[in-house]
Amino acid sequence: MLRLPPFALHQPTTVAEAIAHLAAHAPDVRVISGGTDLLPNIKLAQTRIQHLVSVKFLEELHGVTRTATHLRIGAATALQDLADDEDVRETLPALAFAASRIGSPQIRKMGTLGGNISLDTRCRYINQTELWREALGGCLKSHGTECHVVPGGQGCVASLSADTVPPLIAYGAIAEMVSDKGIRRAPVQDLFQQDGTWHVRIAREELLLAVEIPLPEPTTRVVYRKWAVRQSIDFPLVSVAVRLDGADGVLTGGSIVVSALGPRPRVLPLNAMAGRKIDEELAQALGQLVYDRARPLPNIPYDAEYRRERMVIEVRRAVRVLAGLPERPLAQQA
């Protein structure tokens, strides 16, 4: 069977201790939370690392707390707990839904919000065994110099595949990191960069503590939609969050967040659309908008052209749901 290579596992019980371990071993260190992404990657020798720092025993990283203005979700909160949390379901239903659609029941019990945000990028040329990658001749993310997704490409375009990221961005979530240099806060939207080899702007010395999400106004509504071949286990092949602000069926603002493209999600603000009615016409218009502005690549394992078409459909359907229309176009209702 695939084996893990030897490494040291540090199991601190305080955040201070954890930071000290990270500082001592950076850059040759990773935080391990649920392990459901990191351990397969280490088994595949896609990630090679000597030190792991576990957050399993850090109490303050677990759980959801509600303040007057925010929900604060500890980075080590299990995805299933997030999906089941009453406060999250009530105030951030798209996030609860996204969490409930990740992986399998076991993965959701193990995997955490922080782990999902930090999920490594995915690509058909990297999520493979050493033999496979050797046969390929490597790639930009794996001991090679060539990109097989974009021939001649100089930057790795492996795909961000975290289900929670689009709704977190749509809700305006802020991430809170800590290191030996202190606490740092940044919008989740700004955490990602266009480099598939290391796409999360969280330094190896840093520990993701929590995300804080402002309680949305009643006029803000978000829908998350994921497409994958199977109803369970699979990573998203299309991943979109649509946020529409507005009362009485008239748009005042919002955004579309498209993921499962490259290393960084595409965020399309809708301010220019303010004043339009939230209806089928808007669904079509926003579908066209993402078609023009976001393009799936042949990186994750499904036909990229279809994924592009599907992305448009999922955006349309999200708008229809928010408009109170049936998901499918009316002409198709039998």
Binding site: P5, Q46, T197
Partner: peptide, 10 residues
Amino acid sequence: MPDTASPSPV
């Protein structure tokens, strides 16, 4: 930064 280094075992 890609994980390309092959560290000696700890």
